[in-house]
């Protein structure tokens, strides 16, 4: 564990807490893409299958449970909660995310570290996480104005993988045989997808204005 990875995990946790706060405090999920939340639930379920087979540390196991439980709770809330689900922008959240799942599964079958069930699913989860934010970014552009909590949620979600890139650079230079090129390439793509959001987020922060994404 190094500081970059720890900061990345904390930033990721903060993004989830902000989303839970928004949904709980405002009893609304307007501006949030259910499809992105479903993709994240799939990412965590596919990646943390080793939760019961490989014990790495208490921290690692606890965080995996928190990520799986929170992502499923958010999906349940947006689908079933009688008050929250009424505020879901169903007509705006139309990204065909099934194509993302199919493409990532196909890529994972072609490119993975070892052709085993767990490794293919792990690579699938890494590829899917890189593109999971797309429905959310499309929804933000369509819904025009972005409320503060939603903007902060997306910002921290983008920042977490940027910390992980620093972690991979650090591990590359400090550990002899560290080679996580699948994670690194996907992590770079993932963070790059946030580039324009970060730009508009910075502009809105500098001008102290409302976050506006160009349609």
């Amino acid at each position: 564990m190094n500081i970059f990875r720890f900061l990345g995990d904390m930033t990721h946790l903060i993004s989830i807490l902000i989303l839970l706060l928004k949904i709980y405090a405002t009893k609304s999920c307007s501006g949030i893409s259910l499809k992105t939340q479903e993709l994240y639930a799939l990412v965590f379920l596919a990646r943390y299958l080793d939760l019961f087979t490989d014990f790495i540390s208490v921290y690692n196991s606890v965080m995996k449970v928190v990520f799986i439980a929170s992502s499923l709770a958010i999906v349940w809330c947006m689908r079933r909660h009688r008050v929250v689900r009424r505020s879901y922008d169903k007509e705006l959240d139309t990204f065909r995310h099934y194509f993302l799942v199919a493409a990532c599964l196909a890529l994972a079958l072609l490119v993975q570290e070892k052709f085993t069930f767990l490794e293919v699913l792990w690579a699938f989860s890494i590829y899917l996480e890189a593109v999971a934010i797309l429905p959310q970014l499309v929804l933000l552009q369509r819904s025009g104005n972005v409320d503060n909590l939603t903007g902060q949620y997306v910002f921290f979600l983008g920042a977490y993988r940027a910390f992980y890139i620093l972690n991979w650079i650090y591990r590359y230079f400090t550990e002899t045989h560290f080679s996580r090129w699948i994670s690194c390439v996907s992590g770079l793509v993932q963070t790059a997808l946030y580039a324009d959001f970060f730009y508009y987020y910075f502009i809105s922060w500098k001008n102290n204005s409302k976050l506006q994404l160009p349609a």
Binding site: R5, F67, Y164, H177, S179
Partner: peptide
């Protein structure tokens, strides 16, 4: 086995 085999990252 080497660290990079074990998926020690979240």
């Amino acid at each position: 086995n080497s660290t990079n085999d074990v998926k020690d990252e979240l």
